[in-house]
């Protein structure tokens, strides 16, 4: 039991930390877009590099922040039945959901993307546009990285649900 608790706590800490970092990217992407617009309109200056940076940041946000979003129960549910359930039934739904949906789903994305990412690293894939950001191989790596974070958070969710099922009290972060 203690082991599960420790494990969950570590995962929650990890994704909280990652989430804090990724959150900044949202402010940065707003700033980058705005500066791009102003520079182009007022000074007729524009860089392929910064234009690509806009959507690189966007991709970074939604992949790397997804684990934290799961921690905060931010992935939307159809809660017609769920909201009427007791905490124990909810824990069962989450536990089984993690086993049958989340873990296989994450495995599917991680396993299939490894080769995809490996191929990009082999040629150090960059932008096809001259002046673009030469790090597409890193950007592509966020796919498995993001889903590893989701997977870990899913294991934490499963662990916490198991403890609830077994009737062990646990301080849950972000459950609602």
């Amino acid at each position: 039991m203690g082991l599960i608790k420790t494990f969950c706590r570590w995962i929650d800490k990890l994704n909280t930390w990652v989430g804090h970092v990724v959150a900044w990217a949202t402010a940065i992407v707003v700033a980058v877009v705005f500066i791009d617009v102003i520079m182009r309109y007022a000074f007729n200056i524009s860089f392929v590099f910064t234009q690509e940076l806009e959507w690189h940041l966007f991709a970074f946000i939604f992949l790397m922040g997804a684990g934290y979003t799961l921690l905060k129960d931010g992935h939307v549910r159809v809660d017609i039945i769920y909201q009427r359930c007791s905490p124990k039934t909810k824990a069962w739904i989450n536990f089984l959901g993690v086993i049958f949906f989340l873990i296989p789903g994450c495995y599917m994305v991680i396993a299939t993307s490894l080769n995809f990412v490996y191929n990009a690293w082999v040629v150090m894939e960059g932008s096809p546009d001259p002046g673009g950001i030469p790090y597409r191989f890193i950007l592509k790596s966020f796919i498995p990285a993001g889903f590893v974070l989701i997977l870990l958070q899913g294991l934490s969710l499963g662990g916490k649900s198991l403890l609830t099922i077994l009737g062990k009290e646990i301080e849950t972060e972000g459950e609602r």
Binding site: H75, R77, V78, C85, I93, G97, F101, L102, G105, C106
Partner: peptide
């Protein structure tokens, strides 16, 4: 009632 996206994937 499990999150939509993982239900879709599974």
């Amino acid at each position: 009632g499990f999150p939509v996206t993982f239900t879709l994937m599974g």
